[in-house]
Design a binder for these strands. Structure first.
Lengths: 114, 114
DNA sequence: CTAATATGCAATTACTAAGTTGCGTATTAT
DNA sequence: ATAATACGCAACTTAGTAATTGCATATTAG
């Protein structure tokens, strides 16, 4: 059977945690904005949002914990940039699940044609 | 900018909701089991689990709400089967994000080489 | 028919997450 | 130096989620 990764320290892919981080409209919007390439400060990311800076900050920390974004201090502001690795990680996982499903269908088809 | 889908009724892909449904170890395990092809009853899915049947039922309902599984009643048992469409949906979305990121890097590279 | 199996519904508990507010501190601009 | 900007920390409220328990109902097996 397809087995979920045991969850682990940094670098080890915790698929569920990554999905959970993406499972929020606000965070999904942040990822979309940051994946455009440019790093943004927290204030910048809060602009045009209906929620407070603190709320945005919390969401960014969630994204950072699973590695979807990285942050660096630049003077008085803290810049966030997108990091693609966790996303590739879950894409591979979803491909595995899809592949398992396709194989199952193929076997069923072969069985029925026999 | 990459814009999240406005969230909508059935069929309309609510990416965040699908990610949220996948963002739980238990549900991820259920999806993995069901993607092997065979439909399972709730009791069957509860077997070998540390949580109760009711808990499993609730997780299945969450998965069903975003369309990742479908259920049908068969006599006294209710069978759940995997449905790949929402998964394909989010895979496409992740590809879009990845592509946006890659394009951004390409532009940066081109700019630096100029 | 009766017992065992499989499920559904409802109430409850404990925990987590989203969001806010207030306040303090560091950094930059005038 | 002072004011404005950008941020971090902590307490708190509210709402949602995971999971349990108890009980009722439908279905199948003996």
């Amino acid at each position: 059977m397809l087995q979920a990764h045991p969850s682990g320290g940094a670098g080890q892919p915790n698929h569920a945690a990554i999905f959970a981080a993406l499972g929020d409209e606000t965070r999904l919007a942040l990822v979309a904005k940051l994946s455009a390439g440019q790093p943004y400060s927290i204030s910048r990311l809060t602009e045009g949002s209906h929620i407070t800076r603190q709320a945005v900050t919390k969401h960014l920390r969630v994204l950072e914990e699973v590695g979807l974004v990285r942050s660096m201090r630049a003077g008085r502001e803290s810049l966030f940039e997108f990091n693609p690795e966790p996303m590739e990680e879950v894409k591979e996982y979803l491909d595995l699940v899809s592949k398992q499903w396709d194989n199952a269908l193929s076997r069923l088809k072969a069985f029925l044609e026999d």
